[in-house]
Amino acid sequence: MQYKLVINGKTLKGETTTKAVDAETAEKAFKQYANDNGVDGVWTYDDATKTFTVTE
């Protein structure tokens, strides 16, 4: 399945996608991506759209 990440950071904004077997695996990949880019915020997930959002 394909999952999307929407980033609403202080210095980084945008979107990225990943393919993963489940939401938990996608979340780990997205959190690593956010961490690598210095984004630390509040996470939400919408199962209907398979979209994670992180807001600083």
Rank of each mutant, 00 (worst) to 15 (best):
A34H: 02
F52N: 00
A48D: 11
V6P: 01
Q32R: 09
N35F: 13
V39S: 03
T16R: 14
G41N: 02
T11V: 12
L12R: 04
D22Y: 04
T53F: 07
T16F: 15
N8F: 14
Y3V: 01
M1G: 11
W43N: 00
D47H: 12
W43L: 03
E56K: 03
K10F: 13
V6E: 04
N35Q: 11
K28N: 11
K13C: 10
L12A: 06
Y45S: 01
T17D: 06
A29L: 13
T49I: 07
T18I: 15
K50T: 04
K19W: 14
T53C: 05
T25V: 08
D36R: 06
T51G: 02
A48I: 11
V21T: 14
T25Q: 13
G9C: 10
V21Q: 13
V39W: 08
N35C: 07
Y3C: 02
W43I: 03
Q2L: 15
M1Y: 11
K50W: 06
G41L: 02
M1S: 13
T55Q: 06
Q32I: 10
V42K: 09
K19S: 13
G41K: 01
K28W: 09
V21C: 07
A34N: 04
E15Y: 08
L5V: 03
K10C: 07
M1D: 14
T18H: 08
K31R: 15
G38N: 15
N37Y: 13
G14Y: 15
A48G: 12
K50H: 12
L5C: 06
K31N: 04
K28V: 11
V54Q: 00
T53S: 06
T11K: 10
E56P: 07
T44M: 09
N35S: 14
F52W: 07
T17S: 11
A23C: 09
Q32D: 10
K4A: 05
E15L: 04
A34E: 01
T16I: 14
Q2T: 15
V21E: 11
V54Y: 02
K31Q: 09
L12E: 09
M1A: 12
A34I: 10
V6H: 06
A23R: 14
G9I: 13
K50C: 04
N35H: 15
D40Q: 13
V42F: 11
V39L: 11
Y45I: 02
T55G: 03
K31P: 00
D36V: 10
D46T: 05
K28A: 11
K50I: 03
E56S: 05
A48F: 11
K31F: 07
Y45T: 01
K13N: 09
N37V: 14
V54E: 00
G14P: 05
V42C: 08
A23K: 14
K31E: 04
K28I: 13
T16S: 10
V42G: 05
A23L: 12
I7L: 09
A29M: 12
V6N: 05
A26W: 01
V39A: 04
T16Y: 15
V21F: 13
G14E: 15
V54L: 14
Q2C: 10
G38K: 10
K4Y: 10
K50V: 04
K10Y: 15
E15N: 05
A23M: 14
N37S: 09
D36A: 08
K19N: 13
K10R: 09
F30P: 00
K31L: 09
E56R: 03
D46L: 04
E24Y: 10
E27P: 00
W43R: 01
A26T: 00
A20M: 04
W43M: 04
K31A: 05
T18L: 11
M1W: 15
T25C: 06
A20G: 04
D40A: 14
E56Y: 07
G14S: 15
G41R: 01
G9F: 14
D22T: 07
G41V: 01
W43A: 00
T44C: 06
T44G: 06
D22G: 04
A23N: 06
K10Q: 15
A48S: 12
N35M: 14
A34M: 08
L5Q: 00
F52T: 00
A20W: 03
Q32N: 10
K10I: 14
L12P: 03
M1F: 14
N35L: 15
F30Y: 02
Q2A: 09
F52A: 00
A20V: 05
V21G: 11
V54P: 00
D22R: 04
I7M: 08
G38M: 08
Y33D: 02
D47Q: 10
E24F: 14
A20H: 05
D40H: 15
D40L: 08
K13R: 12
T17F: 13
T18W: 09
K28F: 11
A26Q: 01
G38A: 06
N8Y: 14
M1K: 08
G14L: 15
A20K: 03
D22H: 05
L5N: 01
L5D: 01
I7S: 03
